[in-house]
Design a protein around this nucleic acid. Structure first.
Length: 714
DNA sequence: ATCAGAGGTGTTTTT
DNA sequence: CACCTCTGAT
């Protein structure tokens, strides 16, 4: 039995039991948002008697869904498993799998992942003979992705020809190719679902009636069509409860519309609003900084956090000489806390851009502190994984030409792009599957290629004899000789890593079978396209991540780094009030991740795109009430200052050519392995500088990074 | 068909 | 700087 009154504070209780009208819960950071959602679901099931299958709970990430399920299980037991819980995308996908035929989807349609989608755009740009230098494929991808998230697109419009160079043609061609291959992309999941709801009142009614209660987490980061989705299901006065914090809206760049939360009461009728402002996570002084910072924003509903924990631990701001000393400081402090008994998993280093992770990695590596970079290349994006999955993808969908060509060419078997293009063309012209095309063209291939195709097709046919996904994965690993291929082509170290990942893929398939016993290969593949790197769990390691990735997380000790104008706030935001507010919210999110210790650092200079760049302290430091900090490792930058540029706007390329290093040609050098030699010439500069050296006793001419050479005095 | 090297380019954040 | 694509040589 759950004692709702005692286990929740007044506001939380109110948010849990108001189940009869649209409800907006404005939940500040650390005010027990997840608690409210899980208790509310428990309340709906246990006290109101709602069937768990009739509850829809939307989360921001897959990981958040998992965690919520986990917590819900401890409240309501196995019923937790029946609740519809997931991201907008995963829920839409589930709906489309069931009813997608109504909008013309083929039952076994596949999902194209980010990378393959990019390659598809590249191909399209090429066939349309658009100059990819002037008009990069990536821009088309972004624009079209953006467009697919607008209500206009959902209503059936296509991009306006005038909007961007030939964007309408690119859109048509891209969409045509997706359709031909029976694939949908990320954005289609939502837009097709909404189209389906709008096209078929019967289908809409079905789901609308099915979901008696809808809960949405992180509502401040929903976009226009996610709102449409909710409105179609909930109606104007439906049973919907959204939880969010306008001060933590940080995805405006992705189309999230902060008005969704600011104007919630306009969109729904008889809205109740509950504000949660009691913070149970952070100490009082951390909360104080967060409050003074966010006050500088104009676009907000307005609320102030009240701290429940007394001040203890550290709250410091440090100004470091450069990125290396910043990393040094962070590493040493982590080591100190570790000695004091704080576990690594309780510490996090946060930064604005992924590129900043490198310095921390280097330093932590040196010290042997275990860490985990959250948000690097996702597991399913790794080359070896994509290579192996491409066999399964093509096996699963014999129209998927991207996977066809990938699987056919790795490991290489004497069939290249020319041949593949011919097959594709044939398949497209005659509207047959690629396998069918190969069969019909078979006699036209040379003997070697025929043999290669025979082997390839046997491998695929072999897959048909399995029912379990893990067996298929295993068969691909064994039959393609992929491990041998890796061993032959990569360094020992690299090969080891890749092979480990390959085993991990098998494990993932086994895990998939456990969690979804009914799951098909199609489902498994779709789950791989949906999963992101932030979904992977950390273990007892220090977390390195962007502030965006840190959303929703908390740590005992947090390092908020790189507080410099141009970096955070990022250049380009500084002159745009709205963007500046989003940067400030991002900073607010960063601060409020910390429970006990918070270190806010900046560096006086750092290397950006290869140039050492001086930057001014972030505006946010003053806004947080950090006076100019004593410089740690006093700067001695004056002597270099003429080489520095100010980093408040994007560095330009032309101004910053460093003078070429004086020629080292002709000088005698020594290399640890190759012994003495003479420099012939050098290329590159700085750390990338290479020298062509003639070693008389070790095989003659070699190219060596100069860092590995020492001059020999004559 | 494959590879190494050169050259050009982009960089915020991600479901 | 690091990545990617194109190129030309093998």
């Amino acid at each position: 039995m759950i004692d709702y009154k005692n286990e929740l504070n007044k506001g939380q209780y109110e948010a849990v039991v108001r189940t009869d009208t649209p409800l907006l819960v404005l939940a500040g950071a650390g005010t027990g948002k997840t608690r409210v959602i899980t208790y509310r679901i428990a309340y709906l099931i246990n006290e109101i008697g709602i069937d768990p299958e009739r509850i829809l709970a939307v989360t921001f990430t897959n990981k958040a869904a998992e965690e919520m399920k986990h917590r819900l299980r401890s409240l309501v037991g196995t019923a937790a498993g029946s609740v519809w819980m997931g991201t907008f995308h995963s829920i839409s996908l589930r709906i489309l799998r069931r009813d997608g035929q109504t909008v013309g989807l083929k039952p076994g349609f596949g999902v194209i992942d980010q990378d393959d989608r990019m390659s598809l755009f590249r191909e399209v740009i090429k066939t349309l003979r658009i100059d990819h230098k002037k008009y990069p494929p990536k821009q088309y991808m972004n624009k079209i992705s953006w467009f697919k998230n607008t209500p206009q697109y959902v209503e059936g419009q296509i991009p306006d020809a005038g909007a961007f160079h030939r964007v309408d043609e690119v859109f048509r061609e891209y969409q045509k190719r997706l359709d031909e291959q029976f694939l949908i992309d990320f954005d289609d999941m939502l837009s097709l679902t909404i189209r389906m709801f709008e096209a078929s009142e019967e289908v809409r009614q079905y789901y609308s009636a099915m979901f008696e209660h809808i809960l949405v987490d992180e509502y401040q980061d929903t976009n226009a069509i996610q709102f449409m989705f909710l409105r179609l299901l909930a109606g104007r006065s439906g049973r919907i409860c959204v939880v969010g914090d306008d001060d933590q809206s940080i995805y405006g760049w992705r189309g999230a519309d902060i008005r969704n939360i600011l104007e919630f009461d306009k969109h729904f009728s008889d809205v109740e609003v509950v504000k949660l402002t009691e913070n149970y996570r952070s100490t009082a002084d951390i909360i104080a900084r967060a409050n003074t910072l966010i006050k500088n924003n104009a676009m907000r509903r307005g609320k102030e956090l009240t701290a429940h924990l007394e001040t203890e631990g550290a709250l410091e701001h440090l100004s470091l000489l450069n990125e290396t000393s910043e990393a040094d400081f962070v590493t040493k402090t982590i080591a100190r806390y570790a000695e004091e008994g704080i576990s690594y998993g309780d510490m996090a280093v946060l930064y604005r851009t992924n590129a900043q992770s490198r310095n921390f990695e280097v330093n932590l590596n040196k010290t042997g502190i275990p860490y985990k970079v959250v948000g690097g290349t996702a597991f399913y994006q790794r080359r070896e994984i994509k290579d192996l999955l491409s066999y399964l993808r093509f096996f699963d969908n014999s129209f998927d030409s991207v996977s066809f060509s990938r699987s056919l060419t790795t490991p290489s078997r004497g069939i290249g792009t020319t041949t593949i293009d011919k097959i594709r063309e044939f398949a497209s012209k005659n509207a047959v599957s690629l396998t069918e095309a190969v069969k019909q063209m078979f006699s036209a291939f040379g003997r070697g290629q025929q043999e290669a195709f025979r082997q390839y097709i046997t491998t695929l046919d072999h897959l048909a004899s399995f029912t379990k996904v893990s067996d298929m994965v295993n068969a691909v690993i064994e039959r393609t000789g992929y491990k041998e291929y890796v061993l032959a082509n990569e360094s020992e170290e690299e090969a080891k890593k890749r092979i480990e990942n390959i085993f991990e893929l098998y494990n993932a398939a086994v895990a998939f079978e456990e969690t979804s016993p009914e799951g098909t290969l199609t489902d498994f593949l779709a789950s791989t396209s949906l999963s992101s790197s932030t979904d992977e769990t950390a273990g007892d390691r220090v977390s390195l991540m962007t502030i965006h990735s840190a959303k929703g997380l908390e740590f005992d000790t947090v390092f908020l780094t790189g507080l410099e104008n141009g970096l955070f706030p990022l250049y380009g935001s500084i002159d745009e009030p709205e963007l500046m507010e989003e940067e400030r919210r991002l900073c607010y999110v960063g601060i409020t991740r910390a429970k006990r210790n918070l270190y806010v650092t900046c560096a006086e200079s750092r290397i950006i795109y290869g140039n050492r760049t001086v930057s001014a302290r972030s505006y946010f430091l003053e806004e947080m009430g950090f006076e100019k900090a004593k410089a740690v490792l006093a700067p001695s930058s004056r002597q270099f200052s003429d080489r520095f540029q100010n980093y408040s706007r994007r560095p330009s390329r032309t101004q910053n050519k460093e003078p070429l290093a004086p020629s080292k040609a002709g000088r005698k050098v020594r290399h640890e392995k190759f012994g003495e030699g003479v420099v012939i010439n050098t290329t590159g500069e700085g750390a990338a500088e290479k020298a062509e050296v003639f070693f008389k006793n070790a095989g003659g001419l070699k190219k060596i990074v100069t860092a590995f050479l020492t001059f020999v005095d004559e």
